[in-house]
Design a protein around this nucleic acid. Sequence first.
DNA 1: CCCGAGGCTGCAAGCGTTTGCAAGACTGGT
DNA 2: ACCAGTCTTGCAAACGCTTGCAGCCTCGGG
Lengths: 356, 356
Amino acid sequence: MTARLPARFTAPRAATLPPVSPRPTLRDVATAAGVHPATASRALNEATRSLVRPATVERVREVASALGYQVNPIARSLKTSRSETVGVLIPDLTNPLFPPIVRGIEDALGASGYTVLTANTDNDPARESSNFAAMQARQVDGFIVATARLDDPLMHEAALRGVPMVMVNRQTEQLDVSVVAGDDATGIARTVDHLVGLGHRDIAHVAGPLDVSTGAVRLRAFRTAMQGHGLPDDRVVVAEAYSEAAGRTASLELLDGAVPTAVVAGNDLLAIGSYDALEERGLICPDDVSIVGFNDMPFIGRLRPPLTSVRVPQYELGVEAARLLLDRLSGRTVTPRVVLLPVQLVVRGSTAPPRG
Amino acid sequence: MTARLPARFTAPRAATLPPVSPRPTLRDVATAAGVHPATASRALNEATRSLVRPATVERVREVASALGYQVNPIARSLKTSRSETVGVLIPDLTNPLFPPIVRGIEDALGASGYTVLTANTDNDPARESSNFAAMQARQVDGFIVATARLDDPLMHEAALRGVPMVMVNRQTEQLDVSVVAGDDATGIARTVDHLVGLGHRDIAHVAGPLDVSTGAVRLRAFRTAMQGHGLPDDRVVVAEAYSEAAGRTASLELLDGAVPTAVVAGNDLLAIGSYDALEERGLICPDDVSIVGFNDMPFIGRLRPPLTSVRVPQYELGVEAARLLLDRLSGRTVTPRVVLLPVQLVVRGSTAPPRG
DNA sequence: CCCGAGGCTGCAAGCGTTTGCAAGACTGGT
DNA sequence: ACCAGTCTTGCAAACGCTTGCAGCCTCGGG
């Protein structure tokens, strides 16, 4: 029996296109192939394909591609209550840190047929909750969360209930969810090594906000590294946010006391703020003060002076997070893992031996 | 009658949370409120609310919020074949031009209850087609497209068929879809005015690829502006892509002839490439050659020297694109519109009067 | 020759909503 | 008191797919 297509699909495309294109349905395929919709479904579905006779599979698939059939994911989701969709929560796409991460996530998930829903929370608990809820309503299969606020009750409860979730670039001890992040501690240690190697002894740290995990982690790493060199670990000022302005404020505070010969900034943005502060005080980088950033943002090497920074493999962070989530979704892995990706100190013009 | 909740919803949350949370369904709400699901649906639905007695509406809404009911968008989509979702196609999220645009889109659409699906195409026709198709399958209500390739047959046909679609940051004459972009022509004109005002007469243009609309538009604007000043308009070299490397190559080619006193780059990335080329040739910006960019990317003012550039309101571009699409989706506006947002020349340290 | 066991396929229910249709309850006018 | 019209609500059928269950057919062994 040859597959006969319903007239509406074989009709030649008129020069004046009809306003709406009726997508063929599974039933259309089934009748055209002379089988029951259930059989067509099984034939088209990877997992159930083995249940139907090879010849039938072949026929159905041919008809399906002839009709240009594509399964309707909505209907499928309704039935299976899975959506092949994951939600990605980030604070702000405009922050240069996140685009590469998101891109990595989309590439990795897309390769497995998943699509991603992103939302910006601006670290606002209300936005975060509503976005999270909206995504849950849309039946996302899991989450990748780049915002620290796991104290959000909704998210916290969801995590406890076993909603698949992996955190990226942020850590949390309170809950066992998978985490992928850069190896911040090592990055900071290398930074301090580098500065000490140049001859610096009076090294200060402009820390990021301590309620954000990276802020706390890097601060602790700084203290440890300094102690390891037998140097004072208390030259620390905490910025209120990971922003240029906060970095400037914090740095000015620092400069009001004894001026250190080197500053380890918790972040590239904070480092830029330090640039500003130095300029305001008439100090020159690196002649008077060396500065090191963190993240190695795009074009940061073209600043005046080029910023020495710790390169974090952001794209790979995203890819790895996606992979972890996929493992979890496929049921392969259940136990949470912590993956730390190696970072690399990129030395540029903002660090030099201390004057005199 | 007081609303009695089914036991499973009133059960106290155990310390050890159950692995899965059964979301209440419309039927649950209905029975709890003592009405038929259809009535509950109408009561909860903005548009049909007027059909049901106010007292009933009240009761249903109370029960709904008590149960924490949220409509299941999947089921609704299946029924209505609308999804409250729009697809956003961009070449590469990692290009600093796009995050603000996407953010603007998400903010504007999110405020109207829409969620967005983004995909990166890398300007690869194959990826573009498949992403587009996947989004169509997911029942997106419309598209915002930031990739130039409207020659894609799928997309072209969809546009002809009246699939709601707006293009951002790219133009096309061949099709009548709404477009929102920066006012490139004026931006280039202001740039040339600025340079001429500084005393430059020998001004060259490093154009972006001409098969991208911005490349062509800016080149045309450059020619027009130069002619307007009675200056030669043929000092043009076309870069192969909007990238640093392509900018460097094109600029080197330019510098191999008579060195101009000023360069109008089609793009900030191209301008950075020009920086590189200048440096290689031992020339100083702005002493030997002035350079102007386009887009005013983040931190571009912190380069060495700070780049004079044309600021494009990217976030607003996204917002406006979203607004246009929303208008279209709500049926308010049907005829395509072209919206050009004003740009602004930001003068910094990369432009100065010509030497001598 | 009969019977049990597989291998394929069809049947039908149901996922959670929306919505055309119709029935019941009122209202007011005559 | 009756009837037409208006409100309010219920009924049931979809939307397009998946899946447990059951039935059919075929085949090989006893």
